[in-house]
Nucleic acid binder design. Structure first.
Lengths: 131, 131
DNA sequence: ATATTTTAAGATAAAAAAACTCTTTTTTAA
DNA sequence: TTAAAAAAGAGTTTTTTTATCTTAAAATAT
């Protein structure tokens, strides 16, 4: 019931971009320093954020990372989803993974409700709310 | 962002008790079979549930486990809390663990809100709702 | 009393996931 | 064509989860 450190780091970085100079590219090692995130680990996290369209990147000299959307259009859910994959409260609800008792118990339905509610809460907050 | 298997197992067991013969003691190995939970792992889970007052136990012949409250008075939160400890959405919010940037960032406040909301949702559902 | 049955407690082991690193490749600009 | 940056993928270490096993303690039946 906890976000991973990768998510925490991602939130910091995207949160920083909301306050940063618009359109400027920041290099991985700059971001690493500014946000106190291990440099090479951050590399992986940034890749995820780029793949899911939250950041955009440019290689080579003058390269780096910057936001590819307005902060208002990026939610906490987007960021966590980007680095952790889909949020699932309990394993049994994962498709193709149904547990033996799933037919006749309500636990899973209830947990799925909790999950939907959690996701909605995370969608309510956008990155500009973090400034 | 997922409950542990121990929590899932605990939910099954307590859920079963809600449908089971009232006041009767069920032995660990019975519960293990009924709920499809590994016998010795279940031992540990049952200990947690007893310690937090959800179940009560009796040793020796005729011993076993049973509910020590009405199903209506046991919430999903109680059960998860019992086996996983306090729900924390992000590590930085754990006391004595404050991260360097905690003073000047809103991320943690926001995640704490999400956490409160999640806990409230889990408190809304009680074990009799699972029958 | 004593043997039997059951949970309690603690140590330990195996497996899985998380957290992080390193190396090689690709892209870009000067 | 060289230097600087991200991309990609493999690999490593650490931590957490998921169990198991063994010994102790308690309750009951005989």
């Amino acid at each position: 019931m906890k976000i991973t450190k990768a998510s925490d780091y991602a939130l910091r970085v995207v949160g920083f971009f909301a306050t940063a100079e618009k359109n400027r590219y920041y290099m991985r090692n700059e971001l690493s320093e500014i946000c106190s995130v291990p440099d090479s680990f951050l590399g992986k996290i940034l890749q995820h954020l780029v793949k899911s369209g939250i950041l955009e990147s440019e290689r080579g000299k003058k390269g780096g990372f910057r936001l590819s959307k307005n902060p208002e259009d990026i939610t906490l859910y987007d960021i966590i989803r980007s680095v952790e994959g889909e949020i699932v409260i309990n394993e049994c609800l994962v498709e193709g993974n149904a547990c033996k008792i799933s037919g006749n118990c309500k636990i899973h339905n209830v947990l799925d409700q909790v999950r939907c509610n959690l996701i909605n809460e995370l969608k309510k907050v956008n990155v500009s709310n973090l400034v």
